[in-house]
């Protein structure tokens, strides 16, 4: 772990369009946040508080109206390759097997994209290994409809991690699951993080879910 800030928000404000900006109507206001490399943080708040907006800013999907955002020492000017995301809905592609869903980012993100054909066997092994760590060994060839909700969500976390991102962003990832499955996935996530020490930014309205972390509300 270094002492440098991995994520650095400096007085960040975002209005979704020029009209709202003219009315001084911001989705998020005056966000200041410094996160160290490998830290696990949670952002907690009620629905509509701008948690998802915060995620879009962090990954470069939205540019701030005011202020600056740095990730890994670089100003964020567009979508980041070093991040992985998972959402409340697992959003697996129904026509792809579990393995092919997990492999999807490698087919899209460089430098993996141009190497995908040559290194497919190696990538598939990496995906299988990740699936085994979340208890989905043997499910590689199953389609999403053949998996339970909790299994689909585990697969979607594998998909978010397959390109070994430095930063994992989770937007209410376990909200739709029953309490027992949720607790099980907390532990899986904790173990993956303990082993790999990527940065985690977890957005949730469930205070108990911020259990692994430093937390903000």
């Amino acid at each position: 772990m270094t002492t440098a800030n991995f994520v650095d928000f400096q007085n960040v404000w975002l209005a979704y369009n020029d009209e709202l900006l003219a009315q001084n109507h911001y989705a998020v206001e005056d966000i200041n946040l410094q996160v160290k490399q490998g830290e696990f943080i949670a952002i907690v708040g009620p629905s509509g508080c701008g948690k998802s907006t915060f995620m879009k800013l962090t990954t470069g999907l939205k540019r701030p109206s005011k202020g600056q955002i740095f990730v890994d020492g670089q100003p964020v000017t567009g979508p980041l390759k070093i991040s992985g995301m998972a959402f409340q809905a697992p959003s697996l592609l129904p026509w792809r097997t579990t393995l092919d869903n997990v492999l999807l980012p490698l087919e899209i993100v460089e430098p993996f994209r141009s190497q995908f054909k040559q290194r497919k066997a190696e990538f598939a092994e990496r995906a299988s290994k990740l699936l085994r760590t979340v208890g989905l060994g043997g499910y590689e060839d199953k389609f999403p409809w053949q998996l339970s909700g909790g299994m689909q969500q585990r697969a979607s976390i594998c998909r978010a991690l397959i390109h070994e991102p430095k930063m994992l962003l989770l937007d209410e990832p376990f909200g739709a699951l029953d309490a027992f499955t949720r607790e099980e996935l907390w532990c899986i996530l904790r173990d993956l993080w303990t082993e790999q020490k990527f940065n985690v930014i977890l957005v949730t309205h469930d205070l108990r879910e911020s259990w692994p972390t430093r937390s903000m509300s």
């Binding site: 911001y26 989705a27 998020v28 206001e29 005056d30 966000i31 200041n32 946040l33 952002i43 907690v44 708040g45 009620p46 629905s47 509509g48 508080c49 701008g50 948690k51 907006t53 915060f54 904790r190 303990t194 911020s210 259990w211 692994p212 972390t213 430093r214 937390s215 903000m216 509300s217």
Partner: peptide, 20 residues
């Protein structure tokens, strides 16, 4: 975070020992 405006209200370091 607070809602309308979306602001950070509290930052809290969680000191519980790891692994949790």
């Amino acid at each position: 975070m607070s809602k309308s405006p979306g602001r950070f209200v509290v930052k809290k370091e969680i000191d519980l020992p790891r692994p949790r």
